[in-house]
């Protein structure tokens, strides 16, 4: 009986070796998600990708017009889908965006404040005011655009990409040293967290069955073991760094610079130069126009002007 089973399994195995050449898509784990290894995104230099963080994450701060911020948001999604990031993975941020919306609009409707030029209108039995409402709308989209400008970076890049970006800028070694050490510490912290959670799940912890309060308590409880682990990790990493000759100065004993193989693996192309230059120029231009000349401020928003006119026209 047993022998027959072995024979059968072996037979199946031979058969399967021929048919199991199914190639599955290789993915690369990033800080917040996964991206196909062959994403066109990775043709761009890490520094270029890093600049998109500044560009997309900060630019909306200087723009009040919601229609432009929505366009930036659309651009972010196009960029992500061109990078072949699975957009459905972004679903997890939906609750956050909805919560923020409810919170902001509830405050603005409940506590609109009052100024003489406020234009009121009734809506489903409520007395609403246009100006504070539109202000909230604009702030909301600005915030969401900034949020996704940041999320896009962290869901397409790893610690390594950020390190390469920083080192490309030739900041002093001590700075990049501490930066990389803290990135590693963050990475290990997350790793330890994952380990502890898995250990707890192996002993019956069911996070999906917890209430929000319980979950908060749980996370607070992680701090103790994480702290102990961190102490041990510090010892370990000191040993590990020393054992392979890492020094704070970044200099060799003969005075030369430590070599940087990983960095030189990333080609810095003309396209990267052009993109970075383009993004920086646009950024500077927007800041100058906004701060110096009041472009894209709330009062000048065509959408706002149009709606206000409608409201005033319709009201009279």
């Amino acid at each position: 009986m047993m022998a027959a089973q072995i024979a059968e399994n072996t037979h199946q195995w031979r058969y399967r070796l021929d048919t199991s050449l199914r190639v599955s898509q290789r993915m690369r784990r990033t800080l917040l998600g996964t991206v196909p290894v062959h994403s066109p995104l990775y043709k761009l230099h890490p520094l270029t990708r890093f600049v998109t963080l500044l560009f997309l994450g900060v630019l909306p701060m200087f723009i009040d017009w919601p229609e432009i911020n929505i366009m930036i948001l659309v651009a972010i999604f196009i960029y992500l889908s061109w990078s072949r990031v699975d957009l459905s993975g972004l679903k997890i941020y939906l609750p956050l965006t909805i919560t923020v919306a409810i919170f902001m609009f509830a405050i603005s409707i409940g506590f609109p404040g009052y100024k003489p030029d406020y234009v009121g209108f009734p809506f489903m039995g409520l007395q609403l005011f246009f100006q504070p409402l539109f202000f909230t709308l604009a702030s909301y989209w600005r915030l969401i655009a900034m949020l996704f400008g940041t999320i896009q970076y962290f869901s397409t890049n790893r610690e390594r990409d950020t390190l390469v970006a920083i080192r490309t800028l030739h900041v002093p070694f001590v700075i990049s040293y501490f930066f990389s050490l803290s990135l590693r510490a963050a990475g290990m912290f997350m790793e330890d967290m994952r380990i502890i959670r898995e250990a707890e799940r192996a002993r019956g912890l069911d996070e999906t069955a917890l209430t929000l309060a319980d979950r908060a308590k749980l996370y607070a409880m992680y701090l103790i073991p994480l702290f102990t682990l961190a102490i041990r990790r510090t010892d370990e990493i000191t040993n590990a760094l020393v054992a392979r000759g890492y020094t704070l100065s970044g200099k060799l004993e003969n005075g030369n610079q430590r070599s940087d193989y990983i960095l030189s693996k990333y080609p810095f192309r003309l396209l990267d130069r052009a993109l970075i230059l383009g993004m920086l120029c646009t950024f500077v231009l927007v800041v100058i126009l906004r701060v110096g000349f009041g472009y894209w401020s709330m009062d000048t928003d065509p959408l706002r002007i149009y709606l206000l006119a409608m409201l005033l026209g319709g009201g009279q």
């Binding site: 610690e159 390594r160 020094t247 990983i262």
Partner: peptide, 16 residues
């Protein structure tokens, strides 16, 4: 000391 295997492999080589 690193977050990818490749970096881990070259880490010591870079240091020397």
């Amino acid at each position: 000391t690193s977050m990818t295997v490749e970096e881990e492999l070259v880490f010591g080589l870079e240091n020397i």
